[in-house]
């Protein structure tokens, strides 16, 4: 008797809500994938097919070759990888300084990093446009790379500071004793131990650049330089929307972010805990 009540409780208060939440999460992704796998005629057919009866990859071919997703993908990749490289190097250096040294202005620097978190991103689009127009860098990936790096570095610096503080100081002191200079000690002793932290930082940064829309929209006005979000948005706004190709393009844009995220999400739960509390 009691056991069956316990089971009922578990179903009502655990399995049922969990199933509902997961269905709510998964369904939009499922529906996009199914739309991408249907031919143009099947997408509009009534009654709706919840599982395509004649699945096809023609939308993916179309999106990649004819609509421009190959270009958007390449542009997003260039911006993402370059930003990650800059952010990882610079935030490792500044995180190292914060973690290993006491110096005048350290508190001010930390305060400055904190302040950046409260800067509304939408405030920046007009002045950034003016700055990069004057520099002649509109529609140049460099403008996005610099801006994204500036936006990400404050957070990743704090993140790296935490990761570096976890590496025992004695290890690099021993290396310096053995004749390494400081940069060599960082390169050969600290860096390998930091690798998991660096991967988390890199994934964070990459997903941000991969997904950012408003700044990319503002700083790009040539279709050949669009990143994926700008390209998707452009396609959505067209008069005759090709829904199949749009859905396929979305799935293409989705895959790298989701793979990286699934890989790093454990670090995220741990890292977030530290970041939010600290």
């Amino acid at each position: 008797m009691q056991n069956s009540k316990k089971n009922k409780d578990k179903i009502l208060f655990f399995y049922l809500p969990l199933t509902l939440m997961i269905s709510f999460t998964v369904f939009p992704i499922y529906w996009t994938l199914m739309t991408a796998l249907k031919s143009e005629g099947d997408i509009l057919k009534r009654p709706l097919e919840y599982v395509p009866l004649a699945p096809t990859l023609e939308n993916f071919v179309m999106a990649w070759n004819n609509v421009g997703f190959a270009t958007y993908f390449k542009n997003s990749l260039i911006v993402g990888v370059s930003t990650v490289l800059i952010v990882v190097v610079l935030s490792t250096l500044s995180g190292y300084a914060l973690s290993r040294y006491k110096f005048k202005g350290k508190r001010s620097f930390l305060l400055m990093l904190l302040c950046t978190q409260f800067i509304p991103r939408s405030m920046m689009i007009i002045p950034l446009f003016v700055i990069f127009k004057n520099l002649g860098l509109i529609s140049n990936p460099l403008s996005l790379i610099i801006t994204y790096a500036a936006i990400e570095i404050p957070f990743t610096t704090v993140l790296m500071n935490g990761f570096i503080s976890n590496v025992p100081r004695e290890l690099e002191e021993a290396a310096m004793m053995d004749g390494c200079n400081r940069l060599q000690a960082i390169r050969f002793v600290v860096f390998p131990l930091l690798l998991p932290g660096i991967v988390a930082t890199a994934v964070f940064t990459f997903i941000y650049t991969w997904n950012e829309f408003l700044i990319a929209l503002m700083l790009t006005n040539q279709q050949s330089k669009f990143t994926l979000p700008v390209g998707l948005s452009y396609m959505m706004g067209e008069f005759n929307v090709n829904y199949g190709a749009l859905a396929a393009g979305s799935i293409i844009a989705l895959i790298p972010a989701v793979i990286l995220f699934s890989y790093a999400q454990k670090h995220l739960v741990n890292g977030m805990g530290g970041a939010v509390k600290g």
Partner: peptide, 30 residues
Amino acid sequence: VRAVAFIPWAISGVLASVMWSLMYNEHMGV
């Protein structure tokens, strides 16, 4: 299950717009 539940975190606003516009659509929306 955790990994699946967190996926929307990695999805951009534009992608979410595409997904939901497909579902809200008057003619072919689910």
